[in-house]
Amino acid sequence: METKNIMIVGVGGQGSLLASKLLGHLLMEQGYDVKVSEVHGMSQRGGSVVTYVRYGDKVNSPVIDKGEADYIVSFELLEAARWLEYLKPDGQIVTSTQQIDPMPVITGAAQYPENLVEKMKAAGAKVDALDCLKLAEEAGSSKAVNIVLMGRLSHYFDLPEEAWQASLEAMVPPKFLELNKKAFQLGKNA
């Protein structure tokens, strides 16, 4: 199989590491070669962060380049727009509609662009946008946005529900498992 590419983008501290761990486990269990590239260190401090997940028969590069992503999973709208150029021409964006102002917007040095979902669609991207924060809070914790997004992403994969559940069980601490299962379903069925 040709290598497939998933980018997980967001703001440092939003929980993208758990999402990439879950995907890595899931895809490895399916028998694929997998590479996951993460960001640690300074850029994590509220900065723009990106995680690359690649899988296929044989994966070489650990990173995804412009025009290569089959999916962009985004925790935040501006971040989806920032990384849009990395999407393949027929790629799919799954994004939370949450907006977090970056410092230049907070200080008034820049504007948060409006109507980003429409603009990304106009640029040819397939965009699935949903209020993941609301769904995560409904599941019991605003921290479960990552799993809501994974539930939503599962729509686009031809994998049995049990495979996702098994990876959730493997990657999430037992005391948060029920909450995260609920978050997954809320995202999936939204």
Binding site: R45, K66, R82, P113
Partner: peptide
């Protein structure tokens, strides 16, 4: 070389900040 399509809007940078 692969290429993608960017938005024409200026995307404000998101530098790391003190928490």
């Amino acid at each position: 070389v692969h290429t993608g399509k960017a938005l024409s809007d200026a995307i404000p940078p998101r530098p790391p900040v003190m928490c």
